[in-house]
Structure formats: structure tokens, C-alpha cells
């Protein structure tokens, strides 16, 4: 188990180094950062001084090592646009994105599981038919369209929820939360639903397919033949086996929820990392883009690691060294 975790950690470091390389190349070669920073009137000599001061004249390999060294200390330079340390910038935006991602992942997971199990257990019912049809809409409509439709219906026409922003926020040390105020809660509902809808349908369809598969297996028949209750079979034996593949997908989807919150954050003007990224792209704020890339990679790597460890917890067949006598 420990050896496995160490091995996976080593792999994670490799992946991060590779992403760092890409981030660095982007940082170094997408456009000229100096031209992006300065106005037309800046003299060439001044530009040259800036270039020297930012270390842009050093050999590429030195710059890369410096980039990695800084990245490890959490330093990604100064935002060209806002003249603020990038890390600070991202950290100040992070709570908004994480809260949104957490809320929508919870919605997706809870409803995905419940609906998936329901449609698998009652495959021929009217309710299942409706849910399956609705889920097709969920997977095929683009996120921005769902967001705009929700804004139109629930914010503009019905006026139940605000159409943009985070509402009232409360400072908890360095964490600025919107989940403690009424307006904050009301504000997060529409974007969270928007962001969760795709994952929800995905998880639901996956759970349904897996569960139907599991319900056909011999060990479920044998469980029935032993007279176990329907409840024990469906929610114990079948559901636990269904969860193994669902964990992977759900884990990866959680990564994408954070990474692809961009669209939702833009539609709802949610002050998170995603909207920061979009603005940064528009003005070629390279340090922010590079840091964002690294941050998303880190999220994915971490989630993958957790998913792998969860496998161990759920599936005893993977615990080679654990669990008693062996063969």
C-alpha cells in the first residue's frame, strides 16, 4: 500500500514537471510579454531594461529551472494586467471556484446516484423513461445555453434567484465564503445547477449501466437464491459493486468541474479562477495563464491519486498484501 502510494506520487511529480514544461513554453513563447505589458510610447531602451530585469534574456534552461523553482515555492510572477502576485490573485479567487465546484459536484453525485439507481431498479417504469429522456437533453445541451436558459427562467421571469455574482460574502480568515449568507446561497444555486447538469447526467447514466450489469451477475442471483432481502441485494451487494467504476469517473469529473467552470463562471459572472483565466487570456496575461495551467494540472493529479487510493478501500482484490492468508 505504502509502496503503491509512493510510486503514484513519483508519477504525479513527473506529470507535474511535464505540465510545468508546457506552462513554461507557453509563458516564454506565446507573444512577447514585454509588448503586452507596456504601452506604445515606452522607449525601446526601457523595454530592454524590463526584459533584463524579468530575466527574459537568460538561457532557456536557466529560465525553466527558475520557473520550476519559483513554482515550487508557489511563485508564478506578477500579473501583467493587475501588477499583483499571481499566486495571491489565484488564491483570492479560489474559494469562489471551489465552493461552486463543491456545490455542483454534490448535486451531480447525489442526484446522479439516486436517479441512476432508480432507473436501473425500475428500468421499465414511466419515471425511468422520463428521466432517461431528460438526461439526453442534459448531455447534449451546451453549458452556456443551460445557464442562459436558467437565468432567463429563474432570474428574469420568476425572479427567484439572482442572475449573477456571488451575493454577500463573509471572510473566514483567508477564505471568503458565500455559503454563510442567504444571498450567497441563493446566488450559488443557478450556477451550481448549470455546472452540475452535465456531470449529473453522466454519472446517472454510468450508474444505471453499471448497476444493470451488476444485477445480471451470478453473485446477485446467488444472493437472491439465499433469500437475502431485496434491500440488502440492491443497496448492499449491487450498489457496492457498481461504485467501483463510478468512483473513477466521478473523480475525474470533479477535476473537470473545477477546470471547466470557466464557461459557467463567465455566464454567471462568478468571481472565480475561471473568469480570472478568461480575462487573462483576452489580455495575454501569461503568468496567470501559466499558473492556472499548473493549478488545474495539480487538481487533476491530486484527484487521480485520491481515486486510486479509494480503489484500494473499495476493492479488496487490489490489496495484494492485505487481508489475511492469501493463497
Amino acid at each position: 500500500m505504502l509502496a503503491f502510494i509512493i510510486r503514484r506520487l513519483a508519477q504525479s511529480v513527473l506529470v507535474m514537471l511535464f505540465v510545468a514544461l508546457i506552462a513554461f513554453i507557453v509563458f516564454r513563447y506565446v507573444g512577447d510579454p514585454i509588448t503586452a505589458m507596456v504601452g506604445v510610447e515606452t522607449r525601446l531602451e526601457d523595454q530592454e531594461i524590463m526584459r533584463e530585469r524579468l530575466g527574459l534574456n537568460d538561457p532557456v534552461i536557466v529560465q525553466f529551472l527558475r520557473f520550476i523553482g519559483n513554482a515550487m515555492r508557489g511563485e508564478f510572477g506578477i500579473s501583467y494586467r493587475l501588477q499583483q502576485p499571481v499566486t495571491e490573485l489565484i488564491l483570492s479567487r479560489l474559494p469562489a471556484t471551489l465552493e461552486l465546484a463543491f456545490a455542483s459536484a454534490t448535486i451531480a453525485l447525489v442526484f446522479g446516484l439516486v436517479l441512476g439507481v432508480y432507473t436501473a431498479l425500475r428500468p421499465r417504469s414511466f419515471g425511468s423513461a422520463i428521466i432517461m429522456a431528460a438526461s439526453l437533453v442534459g448531455v447534449s445541451l451546451p453549458t452556456f445555453l443551460i445557464g442562459i436558459a436558467l437565468i432567463y427562467i429563474f432570474a428574469v421571469e420568476l425572479g427567484w434567484f439572482p442572475s449573477f455574482g456571488r451575493g454577500q460574502v463573509v471572510d473566514l480568515g483567508s477564505w471568503r465564503t458565500g455559503l454563510l449568507t442567504e444571498s450567497g446561497i441563493r446566488s450559488i444555486i443557478l450556477p451550481a445547477i448549470t455546472l452540475s447538469l452535465f456531470q449529473l447526467t453522466l454519472i446517472m447514466r454510468l450508474v444505471r449501466a453499471e448497476m444493470l450489469e451488476v444485477l445480471r451477475t451470478e453473485y446477485i442471483r446467488f444472493a437472491k437464491a439465499r433469500g437475502l432481502t431485496q434491500r440488502a441485494i440492491n443497496f448492499g451487494h449491487a450498489l457496492k459493486n457498481t461504485l467501483v467504476p463510478v468512483i473513477t469517473i466521478t473523480g475525474l469529473q470533479l477535476g473537470s468541474v473545477i477546470a471547466f467552470a470557466i464557461v459557467t463562471e463567465t455566464v454567471f459572472q462568478w468571481p472565480g479562477v475561471g473568469s480570472l483565466f478568461i480575462v487573462s487570456v483576452q489580455v495575454v496575461d501569461v503568468p496567470v495563464m501559466a499558473a492556472y495551467l499548473m493549478f488545474i494540472a495539480l487538481v487533476f493529479v491530486l484527484i487521480n491519486l485520491i481515486v486510486d487510493i479509494l480503489y484500494y478501500v473499495v476493492d479488496p482484490r487490489l490489496r495484494v498484501d492485505g487481508g489475511g492468508a492469501g493463497k
Binding site: 453473485y219 446467488f222 457496492k240 476493492d315 479488496p316
Partner: peptide, 19 residues
Amino acid sequence: RGRHIGMIFQDPLTSLNPL
């Protein structure tokens, strides 16, 4: 089932819940 009539299936490799 189980209490009065028990059943043994063909394939022991798939008859037991692996988890």
C-alpha cells in the same frame, strides 16, 4: 429461499460477491 430451499450455482468464481 435459503431457509427451506438452497441453491448452488455452476461457477464458483462468479457466485461470490468479490467485495
